[in-house]
């Protein structure tokens, strides 16, 4: 188990390293970093002062050392807009995104497990075909448009739900629904496929021959086996959920990391963007490890290295 984890940690750390390097070099290879950090209207004096203050007159290697030292202290510089430390702004926005994504992922996984299993229980039945069509459509709808249609119907026309805010259950409905459609649609298809093959496996017949009830057969025996492929996809979807979070948070004014990123782009606040990107990469790194642990818990063969 420990060697398995160590191997996975090393391989997942690589992307993290690439992101750290990437941000550093993007900020330098495109010319004067002041172009990135300062507003377009900055005067030459401001630029010179900025370069001296940030050590951009030093050799690149020294700069890289300073950069790494700053990273360790979570020091990404100050926000142009608020003059607060960039890391602070990001960490303040972080929980909102985590809550939104967490709730959505939970709903997507549980919902897809139930719907996908039921669809697979009777392959090609009306329920199965209905679920397949709906999930395929759900995975193809642009999320931003779905959100706006939701606002049009439930907020503008019916007046049932608020258009923004985070307080109260009603405020959560549209953001969660928007973020949910794509992962839910994809997961239903994955779970269905895995369950169709799991339900036709001999061990399912054996379970039935022991007198196990259908619920025990489907959710106890088959779903646990179908869980591994679904989990892999769920991991990719969780990473991709950050895409959705950017859109959802922008539309619904959700004070999370996605909105922060778009705002810092539109206002050219590079320090905040850089902090947000790196902290996101760190989260993805942690998430990948978490998924690997779940994977190993689910299947002993992974734990013991029988299956790579």
């Amino acid at each position: 188990m420990l060697t398995f984890l160590r191997r996975r940690i090393i391989s997942s750390a690589l992307p993290l390293l690439v992101v750290i390097l990437g941000v550093f070099f993007l900020a330098r290879l495109t010319g004067d970093p002041a172009n990135l950090y300062l507003p377009l209207s900055a005067t030459p004096e401001m630029r010179a002062e900025f370069a001296a203050r940030n050590g951009f007159d030093q050799p690149v290697l020294v700069q890289f050392g300073d950069y790494l030292a700053q990273l360790v202290h979570l020091d990404f510089g100050e926000s142009l807009r608020t003059a607060q430390p960039a890391a602070e702004a990001v960490l303040r926005a972080f929980p909102a995104t985590l809550q939104l994504a967490g709730v959505t992922m939970l709903l997507a996984v549980v919902g897809a497990a139930v719907v996908g299993s039921l669809a697979a229980y009777r392959p090609n039945s009306a329920a199965d075909r209905g679920a397949s069509f709906l999930s395929a459509t759900a995975a193809s709808i642009p999320d931003f448009w779905f959100a706006i249609m939701g606002v049009l119907l439930f907020s503008v026309t019916l007046g049932w739900l608020p258009t923004s805010g985070t307080v109260g259950a009603a405020a959560w409905v549209l953001p969660v629904a928007t973020l949910l459609i794509r992962p839910f649609g994809v997961l239903v298809q994955v779970v269905r496929g895995a369950m169709v093959s799991a339900l036709s496996a001999p061990y399912v017949k054996v379970a039935r021959s022991k007198g196990a009830g259908e619920a025990r057969v489907v959710f106890g025996h088959a779903l646990r086996n179908a869980g591994a492929p679904a989990l892999t996809v769920a991991g990719d979807l969780a990473v991709g959920m950050l895409n959705g979070a950017v859109v959802v948070e922008t539309i619904f004014g959700w004070p999370g990391i996605g909105k922060l990123m778009i705002d810092s782009i539109l206002q050219r606040d590079f320090a905040v963007l850089q902090a947000a990107v790196l902290i996101t990469a760190l989260t993805i790194f942690a998430l990948n490890i978490l998924i690997d642990i779940c994977y190993a818990l689910l299947d002993a063969r992974v734990r013991q290295g029988v299956m790579a």
């Binding site: 496996a201 001999p202 379970a207 021959s209 007198g211 646990r224 689910l298 299947d299 002993a300």
Partner: peptide
């Protein structure tokens, strides 16, 4: 199923639940 009638399958590797 069990006390009255039981069945043994051919391929024990796939008949036992791997997880």
């Amino acid at each position: 199923a069990g006390p009255g009638l039981a069945i043994v399958f051919q391929d024990a590797l796939t008949a036992l639940n791997p997880v």
